[in-house]
């Protein structure tokens, strides 16, 4: 049975609008004008236990709204949503004791308390038995290397340290399902890798289902087998990373390191960029195979090194967004 079922989910917001300038401000005193924003416009997906799903989309696409509905915070206008057998917003208190949530831009720790006291408090809030709490806390502390941070008040932690503590805090009650809303936002490279490794391990060894929203495509490439792309409140694609790449027409990149700085051109390939002796070409494997293109180019130019790769996932997704905009 699916762990998460979302069917035709719709959520609209009413936003008060004010005309610009003093005139608008005065008019706003008398009559407020409202505009309805459709944050989610019929979203469908299912997620099975143990999946690690990337949920991506541009700003304002409806990512956070979806996560907030799934975690019981917001009530949708219509549609069906069932997580772990609960309707999140209807049965909130019982439901949320079985999930973990991390919002990258906010902390769920108490600003003035040492980290360890926040953990103790959370264990009481989640009614975790002392014995089980000690075990899960000790495990998280050792896996996330939190030992030196435990006695420091949260406000004195760096962003990377805080995120590690927040991750631990969301898992003290050992939920089978974890929502991560932009967990890597603002983190430096080292912290990002640490967080990423931890999430992967959590999913692989403990079988925790993870739903991850992010703008960091490296996160997606490093972690997610499945990617759901949302734009303007609807699902654009839902599938594996490879499916996602395949959707944006078969396209490959050939990168050449030339011996000399000379112009390169070919009838089946297009130069995307060049810097010094490095040239990046775009080609369609249906029109010309990689070997054919390479043999043609190496016959004409002296090439020191070359490699073929898929377009970076950012571009793939950016193109999906652009297609969506054109249709709209």
């Amino acid at each position: 049975m699916s762990q998460i079922v979302v069917e035709d989910l719709v959520k609209t917001y009413r936003v008060a609008e004010r005309r610009p300038g003093l005139g608008g401000a005065i008019r706003g005193l008398v009559r407020r004008e409202h505009r309805t924003v459709r944050a989610l416009d019929g979203v469908d997906f299912r997620i099975e236990p143990g999946e690690l799903v990337g949920y991506v989309g541009p700003n304002g696409a409806g990512k956070s709204t979806t996560i907030k509905i799934l975690s019981g915070i917001l009530v949708p206008d219509s549609g069906r949503c069932e997580v772990l057998g609960h309707v999140p917003w209807r049965d909130r208190v019982r439901y949320v004791s079985g999930i973990g949530v991390v919002f990258g831009q906010r902390t769920q720790l108490w600003w003035d308390l040492p980290v360890i006291e926040s953990f103790d408090l959370l264990s009481a809030i989640y009614r975790v038995e002392p014995e089980r709490y000690r075990r899960s806390r000790d495990e998280l502390v050792s896996r996330l290397a939190l030992e030196p941070l435990l006695d420091i008040p949260v406000r004195q932690l760096s962003l990377g340290q805080r995120m590690r503590c927040d991750l631990a805090a969301s898992l003290l009650h050992e939920p089978p399902l974890l929502f991560l809303d932009e967990p890597s936002i603002g983190l430096d490279a080292v912290s990002k890798l640490a967080v990423r490794d931890f999430i992967r391990e959590l999913n692989e060894t403990r079988g925790v289902t993870v739903i991850l929203t992010t703008h960091d495509m490296d996160d997606i490439e490093a972690l997610c087998r499945r990617v759901i792309v949302i734009g303007r409140g609807t699902i654009l694609t839902d599938g594996t990373l490879d499916d996602l790449r395949a959707r944006t027409r078969g396209e490959r990149r050939l990168i050449l390191d030339l011996v000399e700085d000379e112009p390169v051109s070919d009838r089946d390939a297009e130069v995307v960029s060049r810097s010094g002796t490095r040239v990046e070409l775009r080609f369609d494997p249906a029109r010309v195979t990689a070997t054919e293109l390479i043999s043609r180019l190496t016959a004409r130019h002296a090439v020191r090194d070359l490699f073929v790769e898929n377009p970076p996932i950012e571009e793939v997704i950016a193109r999906l967004y652009a297609d969506e905009d054109r249709e709209a």
Partner: peptide, 10 residues
């Protein structure tokens, strides 16, 4: 941050 209060089972 009220959102955070709501993700707690209380």
């Amino acid at each position: 941050n009220v959102a955070f209060e709501l993700v707690r089972p209380v």
